[in-house]
């Protein structure tokens, strides 16, 4: 296959990453360090997610890649083409047909089912990093469950904006133990993490950390008693498919201030349009 091993990475590397993944699944939300490899793309383009995908991909898997919900953006197209070439696997844009979905910053609107695997691309895996620059210290804080500072950030949000203004990478507590960064998905997607049927894997290439949320795991978004966690809502449905349940992107349509709101999940939007029609 063009002189590459199956799925680009050598077998030893894949074994190493799989061992890391096993540990991550065993300790939900815990960040496992791994020996990250150079990938043929820069950091920040999904190298962490790609190494995880490469390590778990089998010949019979069907791969879907999305970027901010869309199948047709550069990042998604490139990564999909990459795995078609180095692993020769079947690809799809339909969430229901995929066995592995690599994603940048969204979870599909179509509910995931048992047997599917989500692979998240993560820029900064450490939710405590904003307040504590030292890695040794944050690891200790996780070990001792010193999580008071996470609420300092939320408090500050309410003090400044009157509500919790964090809208993406909204911190969660996994299985009642580890505070975890769900990657920069909108907080709209946070409830989908809770008791999800699919296995969810997170890979950070630059930081060389991976972590997991196994199927059917409790995932709570941090909040205050008098300011409970809430997701975004829109006043109008999707301008294309009419869905009132999906996460909408604002699209500028002309130079005169024209704009419309459409589903960020292109696959869901297309299916929903077909159903309505």
């Amino acid at each position: 296959m063009n002189g590459y091993n199956f799925a680009y990475l050598d077998e030893q590397t894949k074994r190493m990453i799989r061992r890391g993944l096993l540990k991550a699944v065993a300790i939900p939300g815990y960040q496992v360090p791994f020996g990250g490899r150079e990938m043929p793309m820069p950091y920040g383009w999904g190298t962490g997610g790609m190494q995880l995908t490469a390590s778990i991909l089998g010949q019979h898997d069907v791969l879907k890649v999305i970027d901010q919900g869309a199948d047709d953006t550069t990042n998604a197209v490139s990564i999909r083409a990459f795995f078609e070439r180095v692993a020769d696997v079947e690809t799809t844009t339909r969430a229901t047909d995929a066995s592995v979905i690599q994603t940048r910053h969204r979870i599909p609107e179509t509910p995931l089912v048992q047997g599917q695997i989500m692979v998240f691309q993560v820029p900064i895996p450490e939710p405590l990093r904003f307040i504590e620059p030292s890695e040794t210290e944050t690891r200790l804080m996780h070990a001792l469950e010193e999580y008071g500072v996470m609420h300092v950030k939320l408090y500050e949000d309410i003090a400044r904006h009157g509500h919790i203004a964090t809208t993406y990478a909204y911190p969660v507590k996994v299985d009642g133990r580890y505070v975890t960064d769900p990657s920069p998905i909108p907080k709209f997607d946070n409830p989908k993490l809770h008791m999800c049927e699919a296995l969810m894997l997170f890979g950070a290439g630059r930081e060389k950390r991976l972590y997991a949320i196994p199927p059917y795991t409790r995932v709570e978004s941090l909040d205050f008693e008098d300011h409970p966690f809430e997701v975004q809502r829109w006043e109008a449905p999707c301008a294309l498919c009419g869905s009132q349940e999906s996460f909408l992107d604002e699209v500028i349509t002309d130079d005169a201030g024209g704009r419309m709101f459409v589903c960020s999940d292109t696959d869901y939007c297309r299916q929903h349009s077909e159903e309505v029609a």
């Binding site: 010193e146 999580y147 008071g148 500072v149 609420h151 300092v152 408090y155 500050e156 309410i158 003090a159 909040d223 205050f224 008693e225 008098d226 300011h227």
Partner: peptide, 17 residues
């Protein structure tokens, strides 16, 4: 306010008001 509240939050106080 966040500075004063931090130790309370560390002790598990979860009521913003």
């Amino acid at each position: 306010g966040a500075n004063i509240g931090e130790r309370l939050m560390a002790l598990g106080q979860r009521h913003y008001g």
